[in-house]
Design a binder for these strands. Structure first.
Lengths: 217, 217
DNA sequence: ATGCGTTCGTTAGAAGTTATAACGAACGCC
DNA sequence: GGCGTTCGTTATAACTTCTAACGAACGCAT
């Protein structure tokens, strides 16, 4: 498992400091959201003064981008290990929900409000593709080809995003439904939109998952 | 229709300036998101200098709260007029999508990433309840009682949020599905998560809506 | 029409932020 | 043990939100 360990003491120290910076940043984000993340506050919390952080991250945006990348990586790994443990679609769904509930702001860093100007680096979109890949695997393993709908025929002609994945249009469609429906239920739950109503979000999530897995009622 | 017009010239001027401030703020938000909203920049754009804005909004947060309130009001009115024009669930769905596409950041101000500390004022949650109310009306008008599921029986016992609305559990469940599923598809579209994949978000939205309206396949 | 009080917009300033520049010290490779 | 790289510091600029104090403009009432 250990492979990338040819680190000089300097590199070792550097990556450790970078890790601690990100950790403190996550704490601040969990408390008051991304907008309230302050490099100065992080630096003071670590006992060093302001501009020292710029030795490790070129700018606030670069730090946030690194956090976004880690969030994607974390979700990809969650899916990967769940899938490796033999999880089916339902397993992936609960792994997703657990991952989201463990740190809502991390979830929103991946699937939350986008910044109009921002474009994620290529490696992040690659991770996103891997996530979609394991989801497609699970869908292909489970889905019997349903009847054709206008949307599935559209998917048959526009499956570039499957990247050579040998999934049927029905599987593609189910992967999209899995993604959008569970994100819908989950993001509204995490955002607190079910707060006023006395309603169990877990049951709503389970109901959506159930309708997703059984072709019809 | 005109009722609230007992305005002194001062009040008239004041509300007009407030409106222009919010307009400029929306422009900035559309360009670079809420975090980039700067009171100073808005003031300069209006030809007046910095702190003058504080005569109209006590703080940046209060301005943002006013924008959120306007966003909720706008969505509520969109639903209200659509419903008054005889729109069914599909009509409400397309009204929602049009409203969202007209200003994605406005949509995300309502349904996007929440700020951990923030609690919306009561009048905003009232508007939210009105939105849910018209949605429930449309669901009650259309939904035949489906078979009972664990979730619908749960809804039967936890229907406080319906606020005395005479909707069946099946109607409540469909309102929730309408909300979460369309939000799922819509928010991922608006956030650009379908960008890489050559996929028509309108068709995905239509497919989700279709599955929502036809009890099964 | 003329006070006179309220409201408005200004400038000055405090405290915070991101980010750069320049300097000194510590580190580690050779 | 030197010596170059890297690190952390302070100083500084430009920006932000927001408060305070002042002066001017406005409009209501007499």
């Amino acid at each position: 498992m250990g492979k990338t360990d040819a680190q000089t003491p300097r590199e070792r120290y550097r990556s450790q400091v970078r890790a601690e910076i990100k950790e403190r940043a996550w704490e601040q984000i969990a408390l008051a959201g991304v907008p309230a993340l302050s490099l100065n506050a992080v630096a003071k919390q670590m006992g060093m003064s302001g501009p020292a952080l710029y030795r490790y991250f070129a700018s606030r945006d670069e730090l946030i981008t690194a956090l976004i990348r880690d969030a994607y990586r974390s979700l990809a790994e969650t899916f990967r290990t769940a899938s490796a443990a033999g999880a089916d679609l339902a397993g992936l769904a609960h792994a997703l929900r657990d991952w989201a509930l463990a740190d809502p702001q991390r979830y929103f860093l991946v699937y939350g409000t986008p910044v109009p100007g921002y474009h994620a680096p290529d490696d992040i979109t690659e991770i996103s593709a891997e996530i979609m890949g394991t989801l497609l695997d699970a869908c292909a393993a489970l889905t019997a080809d349903g009847q054709a709908t206008p949307f599935t025929t559209h998917l048959q002609g526009h499956r570039d995003w499957a990247e050579g994945h040998p999934a049927s249009p029905a599987a593609l469609r189910q992967a999209l439904a899995f993604w959008t429906r569970l994100h819908g239920a989950l993001s509204l739950e995490l955002a607190g939109h079910f707060a006023g109503m006395d309603l169990d979000p877990a049951l709503l999530f389970a109901a959506e998952l159930d309708e997703l897995l059984t072709p019809d009622a």
